[in-house]
Design a binder for these strands. Structure first.
Lengths: 140, 140
DNA sequence: TACTAATGCAACCACAAAAGTTACGAGTGC
DNA sequence: GCACTCGTAACTTTTGTGGTTGCATTAGTA
């Protein structure tokens, strides 16, 4: 599997849910569709639940559902929910030896944070309903 | 160390070089500054050389130098040189079982590619000279 | 109550990616 | 020839992550 399979799994699941938002899905069903394991699905979807994007219910008729309208869930919400930050600022965590290094590190951190802000801003312009653009309601 | 230590190492090194672009640096010096290993430095900087951002010279007075002006090296150049793609489109490489899945996968791929394009565009707006804004030429 | 089906979670294993390390060949200047 | 540097291959160690198993908990249903 690829590096950001979690993001991919999240988007696929949310895309499916957006297509039929009333339907309650179990982690086993989702795992089947994604070709993975129910526990892995619960791990990833658990993050989305913590972020308020999904709700889950235990018990006999339990499963997963969107916590709000698909139009109100943006890619930025998903990205932040998974808290996989694009930017890791410092190569070594110890304090830099020289002043130049110290200032350079601050500058690089500032620049990368700016980059990440603009990435998030771009992500916030696309929502889950746009990811899913299927006209037919029928599933296969 | 963090996940994207390569990007971080590249930016720190380029930042230093931009501050004093005539100075030839050895991988040992750079490794000392970065708190890592000369071979690791050569690995990462080798990618930047392949992309035409740096030049290296063997032998007694050898080392590394910027291949062109710091103003002409953007963060996009560095990002692309390291070819660590932000986006991995499909969670499983096999063909989707249902039509909905197939269309969803295509859509997600398209959206993520658009996101990456806009990220690269943003990165191309910042160059190495901007990363390094130290007025003093003295080193510590 | 008993049974079944679902999440929640912890503990592990397996695999892959990456850093770190060692070693050596090849070029370059003294 | 010697010292110094990059280039690269091979290996080890570390780390991240998916996968797996097991079990407690919750909820519906007979």
């Amino acid at each position: 599997m690829k590096r950001n399979s979690r993001l991919s799994l999240a988007l696929h699941t949310l895309g499916h849910m957006a297509a039929d938002s009333k339907h309650m899905r179990t982690s086993a069903d989702i795992a089947d569709h994604a070709g993975t394991n129910p526990v892995v699905v619960r791990r990833v979807l658990g993050k989305l639940r913590e972020a308020g994007l999904l709700t889950s219910e235990k018990g006999h008729a339990g499963g997963w559902r969107l916590a709000r309208a698909a139009q109100d869930i943006t890619l930025a919400d998903v990205y932040l929910a998974l808290d996989e930050r694009l930017v890791a600022s410092s190569p070594n965590d110890d304090v830099p030896t020289c002043v130049v290094e110290h200032r350079l590190q601050n500058k690089i951190t500032a620049v990368m944070e700016e980059i990440e802000r603009s990435l998030i801003e771009r992500l916030s312009k696309t929502n889950i309903a746009e990811v899913q653009d299927i006209p037919e309601p029928s599933h296969g």
